[in-house]
């Protein structure tokens, strides 16, 4: 977090956020599930996940939300305030894959100093997550 973070006045619609690559190992998926107190077996037990028709354990939604929030504040910095995270879920995040997060500023509201960032997290199967984040900038 040493890079300078943008103020509202610095940001233009069309600005790209620095991409973030997240290697999806098994430990990460389990750690995210446990940190969010989500003990559904499909998020940590490979055998049971397979019995239920999944090819492996999958990342839970709370972890996906956590990465979307982190991706935006990595760019926006400690003085930013996230107002909303709205996501649509797609291809599952399985262990062994990589999720690449990209983002673009699609709107800026002068009255509230808030920008809207369109976010995508894609893995080898397609978009795991797509959505928007509203974040107020200093």
């Amino acid at each position: 977090m040493t890079a300078a973070h943008p103020s509202f006045g610095d940001v233009q619609v069309g600005d790209q956020l620095p991409p973030l690559e997240i290697p999806l190992d098994r430990t990460l998926i389990v750690a995210g599930a446990v940190a969010s107190r989500d003990y559904q077996d499909v998020h940590h037990d490979t055998e049971l996940a397979r019995e239920k028709g999944s090819k492996d354990i999958i990342m839970n939604i709370l972890t996906t939300n956590g990465f979307v929030g982190r991706f935006v504040t990595d760019w926006a910095g400690p003085d930013a305030t996230i107002r909303a995270i709205r996501i649509r879920l797609g291809a599952p995040n399985y262990p062994g894959d990589t999720m690449t997060m990209t983002g673009e500023v699609t709107a800026a509201d002068d009255d509230t100093s808030t920008v809207t960032v369109a976010v995508r997290g894609a893995n080898s199967l397609g978009d795991h997550v797509s959505g928007t984040v509203e974040v107020a900038l200093p």
């Binding site: 997240i22 940190a35 969010s36 972890t63 956590g66 929030g69 990595d74 400690p78 930013a80 305030t81």
Partner: peptide, 30 residues
Amino acid sequence: EAMGDTNPIYLDEAAAQASTHGGLVAPPAM
């Protein structure tokens, strides 16, 4: 730790005090 989130407003009291948040806060996605 799980999310690799190093935003100091969540765990660094001094940095959180100095930020617009004025003290420690929780990650909103929590």
